[in-house]
Design a protein around this nucleic acid. Sequence first.
DNA 1: TATTGTTATACTCTATAACTATA
DNA 2: TATAGTTATAGAGTATAACAATA
Lengths: 167, 167
Amino acid sequence: MILKKTIKNSPESIVSLALTSETLTGRSGFLLAKAAQRVRDTYDEHLKTLNMNARHAGILTILEEKGSLAQNELGKCAYIDRTTIVALIDDLEKLGLVERQEHPTDRRSHVIYMTAKGKELMPQIGKKAKEVEKEYLGPLTASEQKSLIQLLRKLVFHHYSMPKETR
Amino acid sequence: MILKKTIKNSPESIVSLALTSETLTGRSGFLLAKAAQRVRDTYDEHLKTLNMNARHAGILTILEEKGSLAQNELGKCAYIDRTTIVALIDDLEKLGLVERQEHPTDRRSHVIYMTAKGKELMPQIGKKAKEVEKEYLGPLTASEQKSLIQLLRKLVFHHYSMPKETR
DNA sequence: TATTGTTATACTCTATAACTATA
DNA sequence: TATAGTTATAGAGTATAACAATA
């Protein structure tokens, strides 16, 4: 990536450059923050018509894949804190897409299961996710897309596999 | 990546699986969100001793690379909204690392320049950034790290090169 | 003692609306 | 009319502390 630089010689040392920092755009911290922000926007935009956001869709996707799960297991699957997931399940319950059930053996725990309405909606959610992925990853070739996913998976699995204290 | 699945046959259809969703971890939306969250935590942790966070360090890095910039140019460089960057510059000014100056030709504009104290601090910030990048990208080989950065750059450049309306 | 779900609370990051002063 | 900086404000996402119920 070659960036055009037009340096104006100014006594005030104000220079006019391409509005991009080579250093910053070489750091994963900056790139991941900006990439995540934009892909989330895209997800939210596409899911707005279903009255949900990317995290709601993610929870439903886990339930579809794994079947009913305890609320804490669902949180671990989504890498979402137990205090954070409460409101998300609340939202999905209000939409009539999931319901909390008593856990058969642990009375502290809630089992989250998908309602018929939720199951009916899954094809639409899957379709939206596919659209977003296609749109967002569009600038990359198919092979590059695959590479990116694999590299990110490797990173995420590694950093979420250890307890917070030893990170 | 092969995940071990231990499916318990339970009449309540509660299954015990590896707490990872194949579907979700195949989507850039999920992976980028989680990767960004963790790398930001790592940056913040390392920069805490300098009383700043990842975004402050990013702004200083841009100033070091490009010299003094108008506040709006700085925001564009960092992909940060003009209403958001105000407080960040305030913070850096309070730390005595940058100062707002009058723009020589446009009286609406502020030029942000680094103070001597700020310039002195840059080696430390650069060192911290290198440490974080090394630590965070550690699970990847050198070649993989390079690939990831290149792929993310391509994505970010593409998605931030067009105006918001046509995204 | 530890864990599950919950609430209250707070902090970070972001952006819209509206204002002022300029251009 | 448009732009630069600013403030007020609000929203999304996250997590800590503390509690009740239960293991």
